[in-house]
Simulated assay, not measured.
Amino acid sequence: MGLIYFLVYLFLEILFSYEFMKVFTPFGFFLEILFTAAVGVYILQTLDLSLSSNMQKLMRREITQEEFLSIGLFKLIGAVLLIVPGFFSDIIGVLFLFEPFARFIAKKLFPSRNFYHKTYTNDDDIIDVEIIEEIPKKD
Rank of each mutant, 00 (worst) to 15 (best):
F115V: 12
F115C: 03
S53Q: 10
P136A: 07
I83T: 05
K118M: 08
L12Q: 08
S70K: 00
V94F: 12
L7V: 10
V129Q: 08
S53E: 08
I91A: 02
L58C: 03
T25G: 06
M1C: 14
Y9R: 06
F30C: 09
R60Q: 13
G72F: 01
M55F: 15
L97T: 00
Y9W: 15
E133W: 15
Q45H: 11
M1I: 08
I77L: 11
R113M: 09
L7Y: 15
T36H: 09
L95H: 01
I4E: 12
G86N: 06
I14C: 10
K118A: 05
I131Q: 06
D125G: 08
G78E: 01
S112Y: 02
V129T: 13
F115S: 07
E32K: 10
F74Y: 08
V23Y: 11
L82F: 06
F101C: 00
L49A: 10
F74D: 01
V8H: 05
F98G: 03
I63A: 04
F68W: 10
T119S: 09
G28A: 05
N114E: 06
L109Q: 07
L44P: 00
I105R: 00
V94G: 07
E62M: 09
I135N: 08
I132K: 15
F110D: 01
L69I: 13
F20H: 08
N54K: 14
T36D: 02
F87M: 00
N122I: 05
K107L: 01
G72I: 00
E134N: 12
A106M: 03
E13T: 07
K107V: 00
V94H: 01
S112V: 07
R60G: 06
Q65K: 13
I43A: 08
E134D: 09
I131F: 14
L15Y: 15
L47G: 00
I83F: 04
D128H: 14
I132H: 13
R103P: 00
G40W: 01
I132D: 09
F20R: 03
L15S: 14
L82V: 06
L81N: 02
E133A: 10
Y18H: 11
F74C: 00
T121G: 13
F35T: 14
E99I: 08
P26H: 06
N114K: 13
V41E: 09
N54W: 12
D48K: 10
E134A: 11
M55G: 07
I132N: 12
G28H: 04
K138T: 09
L95I: 08
A38E: 05
A38Q: 10
E13H: 07
E134S: 10
Y5E: 07
M1R: 07
N114R: 13
F6L: 15
Y5G: 11
T36N: 10
R60A: 10
I14E: 13
K108W: 11
E134T: 13
R103D: 02
I83E: 02
L51I: 13
E19T: 07
F27P: 01
D125M: 10
L12P: 02
V41T: 10
L34G: 07
R113V: 13
L97W: 02
A102M: 03
I43E: 05
F101N: 01
S52C: 03
E13I: 02
K22I: 04
S50G: 14
L51R: 09
L51D: 04
F35I: 14
M55S: 14
